[in-house]
């Protein structure tokens, strides 16, 4: 395998680990962007340049900007980082980490027992992807459009500033 792949894979894993361990949300976000960029390199290596571009433009570009906006809106800073430090005790993370490790070992085993021969990579260019997307997967595109529409409407609705509203059952309980 290409040495480039290993390097990028290594970068991806490291940056992802950093994402889940950082205390400051902005730091974590930066590491996530690095992780996404390296994944886009892997996509490119796998012969999927279109996916690599989308990864950078939409994920690293658009979605991460959303996160940054929210973090700024909530004004999360040092206070949050300090709090995170308190929350992230070994007592908290050791169990889940072990479980995840077991899961990974199992995945590792299952993937490696499959005897897969190496193959010659072929680039799947954007044109083929586009033809596939708008011919057999047209329904899927429509559904995705609807999903995005629902996401926009839902976000607009949920994001409105409202007063603290208790559920009616909780209200009753409170009265009692």
């Amino acid at each position: 395998m290409d040495i480039v792949f290993y390097i990028t894979a290594f970068v991806t894993v490291i940056s992802t680990i950093m994402v889940i361990t950082r205390h400051n949300p902005v730091h974590a976000l930066l590491y996530l962007i690095i992780s996404l960029l390296s994944i886009s390199v892997i996509f490119f290596l796998l012969g999927a340049p279109f996916a690599a571009l989308l990864e950078i433009i939409i994920y690293a570009g658009a979605i991460m900007v959303l996160f940054i906006f929210v973090i700024m809106l909530l004004n999360l800073g040092k206070e949050t980082a300090r709090q995170e430090k308190e929350w992230l005790k070994p007592k908290v993370w050791i169990g889940p980490a072990i479980l995840s490790a077991i899961l990974f070992v199992e995945l590792f085993y299952l993937i490696t027992i499959a005897d897969v021969a190496p193959y010659n990579l072929q680039t799947v260019d954007p044109k083929t992807v586009a033809i596939s997307l708008f011919r057999p997967y047209l329904i899927g595109v429509e559904l995705a459009a609807m999903l995005l529409m629902a996401g926009v409407v839902g976000a607009a609705h949920i994001g409105q500033h409202k007063k603290m509203i208790l559920h009616r059952f909780l209200k009753e309980e409170g009265r009692l």
Partner: peptide, 16 residues
């Protein structure tokens, strides 16, 4: 798979 497991671990261990 490794990235996925890391993601899961992140979801579980973080409180934020």
């Amino acid at each position: 798979g490794l990235l996925f497991v890391l993601g899961i671990a992140g979801v579980i261990i973080r409180k934020n």
